[in-house]
Write a protein that binds this DNA or RNA. Structure first.
Lengths: 231, 231
DNA sequence: TAGTTAAATATTGTATACATATTTAATCCT
DNA sequence: AGGATTAAATATGTATACAATATTTAACTA
């Protein structure tokens, strides 16, 4: 019948691919602490596979920047210094600023309505006062922004970097006041985009994402506060 | 004696790593045409190794975006559509604009002098009228810009994306007039950065990198003009 | 002859085995 | 005893072997 049988089956994915996901998730969650060594045989029998798919997964994670690989001396969870973290957030801010600019320029009324919806979802999370829920809704909001850029490549790049920064973003939202200010900053972004004000939208999201001043202090304290399994 | 023997030895690199370089270079050079399938065993005995390091190299190249891998149906050289190419150049432009902005903000007089030197090197290439030399000097100029951002992560990201766009950049410079305008645009960027004019620097480099209008036409014609081994 | 089905072939994914480098432990010497 | 040297142990890198899935080819049916 349908000659083009789309292979959506998740179970058909290779072991290496699913392993990369699982290990990557474990790193993001903090199960494997930054700097800790990732032993191939240990991972292999932890996940019940041979070394081959483990190695392939590690190579993927290395390319994505989650782990660092040194020849002949194995892989270890990437250790991101405070300076580099700020650098990464700076780039993230610039990517999102570009997204916001394009969103303001290109979004249809329907798309703007969708954006407002995700913003409302964040508001609910604020009311419920659940940081974990807000974290998720916040993520959706930003992802929506990437999509509204109407630049698929940009969307992919933004998603990739946001994945890398995920654990640190979660840390920031541990602070109640940060959730509140985060939400209000979202509001400015939404307003600017809906008004078609490119520059204003770019500025708003840039200052929302950039880590500086007290934001930096918050991030640092929350990072050193939680050891290992948190950061 | 020196306990910390730094392992700079290139020969000590793994086969997989060097393979990724070689295959990646072959893709960039156009030896493997976009869309063409990369057979593991063929690559293996072409390079005189087993399938294992070949697979690892392919995974790396896949993560970097040079090839696309579909489960159970192998790897093929990434086929970049015209639309996606424009998208990628748009992001490249934005990254470089950020670099230029930071360069204008942070560069020391010595660094500015270095920037002018690389610009002068481009001028020589223009005079000699050798597109291939200009291509190389141009690359150095942009790399210098990345470095002057004083943001190592940004520099890495910009380098990675510029590597992906390399073959297309080379194509653009096939057109003599493009070399001339490229050089004069560089001049504007240098002037703005040396003057500390962030906005102007960002604007100049952005319009320099972005593919639009006749630039787009040039790129497209040069792409369809050269079949296979060129693009 | 066109279309469908089934067998054969080829290719990818994974496991195991081997080679080589690195780390750790033990030994030796001053 | 302390540091350096050497040897054993451990881990990574590569090759080969096997398993599972796609693709191709051939046979068959309507």
């Amino acid at each position: 019948m349908d000659t083009a049988q789309l292979d959506q089956d998740a179970s058909s994915l290779s072991l290496a691919a699913t392993l990369a996901d699982r290990i990557g998730e474990a790193i993001a969650t903090g199960i494997y602490a930054p700097g800790s060594k990732l032993d191939e045989v240990e991972l292999a029998d932890r996940y019940g596979v041979s070394r081959t798919p483990v190695r392939e997964a590690l190579i993927q994670l290395g390319a994505a920047g989650f782990i660092t690989m040194r020849p002949r001396r194995g892989a270890s969870v990437a250790q991101i210094s405070a300076l580099r973290l700020v650098e990464m957030f700076d780039v993230m801010a610039e990517l999102e600023a570009f997204c916001a600019r394009l969103a303001a320029r290109r979004s249809s009324p329907e798309e703007l309505a969708q954006l407002r919806l995700t913003h409302l979802a964040c508001e609910e999370a604020v009311k419920v006062n659940d940081p974990e829920v807000y974290y998720l809704r916040n993520e959706s909001f930003h992802h929506m922004l990437y999509k509204l850029s109407h630049n698929d490549f940009l969307e992919e790049q933004a998603l990739a970097l946001s994945r890398r920064l995920r654990p640190y973003r979660r840390l920031q939202l541990r602070v109640r006041s940060r959730v509140l200010s985060s939400f209000s900053e979202h509001g400015e972004v939404v307003d600017a985009i809906c008004a078609g004000s490119e520059d204003q939208a770019a500025l708003a999201i840039r200052s929302h994402v950039t880590v500086q001043g007290e934001r930096f202090a918050d991030l640092m304290t929350s990072m050193i506060g939680k050891t290992q399994a948190e950061v």
